[in-house]
Amino acid sequence: METFVETKVKTNTRNMQKRIIEIEDLKRSFVMGNEVVHALKGISFDIKEGEFVTIMGSSGSGKSTMLNILGCLDKPSAGDYGLDGMLTNEMSKNQLAKIRNHKIGFIFQSYNLLARTTALENVELPLMYNSSVSSTERKESAISALNKVGLQERMYHTPAQLSGGQQQRVAIARALVNNPVVILADEATGNLDTRTSYEIMALFQDLNRQGKTIVFVTHEPDIAEFSQRTIVLKDGKIIKDALNSNVKDASEMLSLLPKEDHETE
């Protein structure tokens, strides 16, 4: 009998494009006292290498629950989840920690940076838990990640000395530093104003052009327009999964914004 992953691997070779994320009939329910909340009611989709996908839906539709499972921060109640050719269902806590450390870059709405810790040290953090990375390699990788998000000048600043947009860039650099197979972002622009959001989206588009696979959760339709594909959730089910025919360019949109809207950071 073929396992789910083996079947998918065959499909992969047939389609000649690697599938990074493969989920099949994914369910997640929460028990609250004697009530059961079904946050995800059977979700299946694949995400191929190099895709930029947004997951849309109104508040409470299950987007975060979905992304947390993709990020191995949470486990599904039922269904299969394959990441980069590995089935995660039966993995132990420690194996999942390794997966998060080596294959996933997760970005939170509230940045989740360590307070009173420099940008550089925040970005270095994932590599602190990887014993195969030396301290010099760690520092080099962190500096290069900070370069990619345009914060090389702010390396030694602590979160309190940085604007919201800059803090989110530090968080993005932290998600990039381990060279993950997929970047997962949960409402990464949720706390930012329009201009800063567009700047962050331009950065994501840039990273995507360089080959990064990105899954981006948002409830704002204009943000979704920057991705190639949009999956829409409603009450824990997919109601739409379509390619975006008219992908907008975030840097172009930025230049169209009225000048007075500009905020210095």
Binding site: R100, H102, F106, Y129, N130
Partner: peptide
């Protein structure tokens, strides 16, 4: 606890 959550999210294991 949130700090612990973050450390685990970026790959820290329980024993770390």
């Amino acid at each position: 606890t949130r700090e612990i959550g973050l450390r685990m999210a970026v790959g820290g294991q329980g024993r770390d």
